[in-house]
Design a protein around this nucleic acid. Structure first.
Length: 874
RNA sequence: GCGAGAGUGGCGGAACGGUAGACGCAGUCGACUCAAAAUCGACCGGCGCAAGUCUUGGGGGUUCGAGUCCCCCCUCUCGCACCA
């Protein structure tokens, strides 16, 4: 045990702990392993219903953290519960093993990324196994293993052939610190999601997955996913971003080359309020103007150098440059200037828009800055058309069109329809649906990723690596002391003969975005050793995942990509399912107090000690410590607790029990030493209760004394309540029921001997063992052994108990007696009590009679077994 | 700005429209102990000696009855945000 360096006062002081988890936990882990309790077949034939539980697989950073403990405990409770309920449960584990930290380690410490990763996997596997998770370890794989990523390459080639993937020259988000391309989804407030560096625009050749083709289906299917959190579905819907509007062409007034500009608009009804047309810096018309206008060229260069990120930083200041070109408004025939503007995105719509300052904030800001006309064409309800005007706020609400010729008097909806009809009639455009979602660029200029299996030949162009040559393996001998992609610097790897013509050719040196790796691992788990990427029969049996569990931070990126990739695998004949995850649960974070020394340095919880008065002091220096906010555990704030230490000190069951007990799992949980100690004490208490109890197995006795009956009722009510709570993932409530059960059992333990009591105790403990097994599996086995010494049956394989309805029904009800909704007293009644009798008794209660005095009863409300309410007058 | 969610004792939180505060943590008192820890027992929202009375962010409403349903407001958290 490595607890020697831990503060002595934190070590649980119990005279002689009866339950020796240090011996028990490894013993039961071995027993489960020996009995292969958690193994399932790729294609099972036993006829049991399947249930696939999956937690988001970990990145092998080196150690497990509390977020992992929470994630895998939640999943394990579900897996063990479903298994006990008779399901054939697949619960696998793997490693999301490609990614930048491995390369950083290589640069900083001279370790090869592969060695670093595999060593981390080994260390974390050991830690995870100590948690006692019911995982089918035979299914384990790492995405950095050619045996995995080779199949990924094959999938990619299939998708390429099917037209789901294409090569594109495009402006990409370039992270100058990581030296790689980022997907839109990976740019947060203009910065790289990992490096935090300002993202630049760069034109590169990249591989793109055509996720936008599936945008309509990805959006529509969200409505058919009742077991996903509403919040996540909304986030995805917003991200996909469907909008309805129109495309229309504006004729250029004095054409010199380009003779029209097409815009996208969601407000065709405001066309009469147009005062300018704005185009993106990358727009072809801008390029044409720049050829003869140095000012325009300079402006374009300025916008492009700063990119979108700089704009965000500059408090979104709108800037434009007049091109001198005019366009003609098809509805009014008026001429309007074309501006190049820094806020127009080439990637959205058509890269051009018409400005209607009266009804759009951004257009209004722009118009005010450059002194362009502001013409209101929608009248707010109740406003006077003679006096209505726009000052600093546009009117973007629902109103009636005016000063708009044939649209006058129409509401927004009708005006839009009429405008689109007119645009269509004139053949200058049509109504369209537009999407915010961008295609998914998957090329990354990185070494530690899955190589993209493509060869570039001067004669043949883009040539796929023949499938017989897969897996295309990463070379091991790379160096990291130069910036950029080590694969590109490798002396020989990229030089290869063209598979088609045999001439010298070059390998693609980009690797896949690691989100590709995690977009199909759930499918690979179904047949992890297969020769093909997936065995159709296995995947069709197990998919979709019935319960997927992970952090909310993956609400968009990972989950959207995985949904798309599943569709792409279906389109290429690898799967039948369209949706990978039927049920999704997003867990809350694990938080902890943070501590700072007086000179402002963050301190680890191990470095501080709580004084009797609750203030904190630095252990070594004795100086006061500033207690900071309670926030998500992070290395930078040093407010982390190492799960390995907790498991060593208190055992896996304690860690599992605590992380389940305090909070609903979707909320953040604060890790506290006191809470853990409480959980630890409860493991000991349960053990003692079972150990000290007098119980007796055997046939159901014919007779039960009052205490025995009470205990039996508690047992069966607990079974019913636990079943419901676990089913709903309300684990904190399930924990509360176990506490109640234990308290009630302790009560019954003290009762005088009576018929059936010893048997009722056996029944209670027998149920207890199975009920707690999902949460505290090792302790459950210990109790199982006490009940049946020497048995080789494992609680892990026991069936979930079934509540006897005769025993869950209450023997009597305490019902509330109210007068005008105010509680006056309670009375106990039999379940089959007659209404009139209950009412009469209630009315006769002294407190009730007092409240009724001098009043006339107008109405008597009676809800069986619940409540009586007298409505009175006077 | 737009969208979503949440406000209940000292704390985490329970509560099919039906006795608000289950259960845990912390705390108080007692037993055991030379003492402490552990353990066991009692208490544990406010005011009140008590009978009572007030109490689920604030205000209104629906209802015999509202933490729960409806409307308005306040606060906090999260997500998105030059999207035309």
């Amino acid at each position: 045990m490595s607890s020697d360096h831990l503060p002595a006062e934190a070590v649980p002081a119990t005279d002689t702990p009866r339950y020796d988890f240090r011996a028990a936990e490894p013993r039961w882990q071995k027993a489960w392993n020996d009995a292969a309790c958690f193994r399932v077949e790729d294609v099972p034939t036993d006829g049991r219903p399947k249930y696939y539980v999956l937690e988001m697989f970990p990145y092998p950073s080196g150690k497990i953290h509390m977020g992992h403990v929470r994630n895998y405990t939640l999943g394990d409770v579900v897996a063990r519960f479903k298994r006990a309920c008779g399901f054939s449960v697949m619960h696998p584990m793997g490693w999301d093993a490609f990614g930048l930290p491995a390369e950083n380690a290589a640069r900083e410490r001279g370790i090869h990324p592969g060695k670093w990763t595999w060593d981390n996997i080994a260390a974390m596997r050991t830690e995870l196994k100590r948690m006692g998770l019911s995982i089918d370890w035979a299914r384990e794989f790492a995405t950095c293993d050619p045996a995995y990523y080779g199949h990924q390459q094959a999938l990619f080639l299939d998708m390429l052939r099917a037209g789901l993937v294409e090569r594109r020259y495009a402006f990409v988000n370039w992270d100058p610190v990581d030296g790689t391309v980022l997907a839109n989804e990976q740019v947060i407030e203009g910065r790289g999601w990992r490096s935090g560096a300002l993202v630049e625009k760069k034109r590169l050749s990249t591989w793109v997955m055509r996720i936008t083709d599936d945008a309509p289906d990805l959006l529509a299917a969200l409505d058919e996913m009742p077991r996903w959190p509403e919040r996540v579905r909304l986030m995805q819907a917003n991200w996909i971003g469907r909008s309805e509007g129109a495309r229309l062409r504006f004729a250029v007034a004095d054409p010199a080359g380009i003779d029209s500009v097409e815009v996208y608009t969601t407000r065709p009804d405001t066309l009469f309020g147009m005062s300018f047309l704005a185009i993106a810096a990358e727009h072809p018309l801008a390029a044409q103007v720049a050829m003869t206008n140095p000012g325009a060229a300079a402006f374009i260069a300025d916008v492009q150098s700063k990119g979108t990120s700089e704009a965000v930083l500059e408090a979104l200041e709108k800037k434009g440059f007049p091109t001198g070109v005019d366009v003609i408004n098809p509805f009014t025939g008026l001429r309007h200037p074309v501006w190049i503007a820094n806020f127009v995105l080439m990637e959205y719509g058509t890269g051009a828009l018409f400005g209607c300052p009266a009804h759009d904030q951004r257009d209004l800001d722009f118009a005010r800055k450059y002194d362009l006309p502001v013409i209101p064409v929608v009248l707010p309800p109740g406003a006077d058309p003679q006096t209505f005007g726009i000052t600093d706020k546009p009117f973007d609400g629902e109103g009636v069109a005016y000063q708009s010729a044939f649209l006058d008097g129409l509401g927004q909806r009708d005006a839009k329809a009429a405008a689109i009809a007119e645009i269509t009639r004139r053949g200058i455009g049509q109504g369209v649906v537009n999407w915010r979602l961008r295609d998914w660029g998957v090329s990354r200029q990185r070494y530690w990723g899955c190589p993209i299996p493509i060869i570039h030949c001067e004669t043949c162009g883009v040539v796929p690596v023949p499938k017989s040559d897969l897996p295309l393996i990463l070379p091991d001998d790379v160096t990291f002391y130069r910036p950029g992609n080590p694969l590109d610097h490798h002396p020989t790897w990229k030089h290869v003969a063209c598979p088609s013509c045999g001439k010298a050719a070059m390998r693609e040196t980009d690797t896949f975005d690691t989100f590709v790796d995690s977009s199909w691992y759930f499918a690979r788990f179904c047949s992890p050793q297969a020769e093909a990427p997936v065995v159709r029969a296995a995947a069709d049996h197990w998919l979709p995942v019935d319960q997927y569990i992970g952090g909310i931070e993956h609400a968009i990126l990972h989950l959207l990509y995985a949904r798309y990739f599943t569709r792409a695998m279906k389109a290429t004949g690898h799967l039948s399912a369209s949706e990978p995850f039927a049920g999704l649960f997003t867990q809350g974070m694990v938080t902890h107090e943070s501590y700072k020394s007086q000179d402002g340095a963050w301190l680890y919880p191990e470095e501080v000690v709580r004084r009797a008065d609750g203030t904190m002091v630095h252990k070594d220096t004795g100086r006061d410590v500033v207690v900071g906010r309670i926030e998500a555990m992070s290395k930078s704030k040093r407010n982390t607790i190492d799960p390995a230490n907790i498991i060593a000190r208190y055992g896996a069951d304690t860690a599992r029990w605590f992380i389940l007990s305090d909070n609903p799992p979707e909320r953040d949980i604060e890790w506290t030493e006191a809470g853990v100690l409480g959980a630890y004490r409860f493991t000991q208490r349960l053990y003692r209760l079972a150990e000290n109890a007098t119980f007796e197995a055997g046939d159901t006795p014919a007779e039960f004394g009052p205490a025995a009956r009470a205990l039996r009722r508690l047992t069966h009510r607990t079974i019913a309540a636990m079943t419901e709570a676990v089913e709903l993932l309300a684990f904190n409530v399930a924990v509360a029921r176990v506490y109640e059960f234990a308290n009630g059992f302790a009560e019954a333990d003290k009762a005088a001997d009576q018929p059936g009591l010893a048997w009722a105790r056996f029944e209670a403990l027998d149920a207890m063992a199975v009920l707690i097994a999902p949460m505290m599996p090792h302790l459950a086995e210990e109790i199982g052994q006490m009940l049946r010494p020497g048995t080789t049956n494992l609680v892990a394989q026991a069936a979930w108990p079934v509540a006897d309805p005769d025993l869950t029904a209450a023997e009597a009800f305490t019902i509330a007696i109210q007068v005008m909704g105010k509680l006056r007293t309670t009375i106990d009644v039999a379940p089959d009590a007659v209404e009139d009798d209950v009412l009469a008794r209630a009315e006769a209660e002294p407190n009730v009679a007092k409240a009724l005095e001098g009043k006339r009863i107008v109405k008597r409300i009676y809800v069986k077994n619940r409540i009586v309410n007298f409505v009175v007058a006077g």
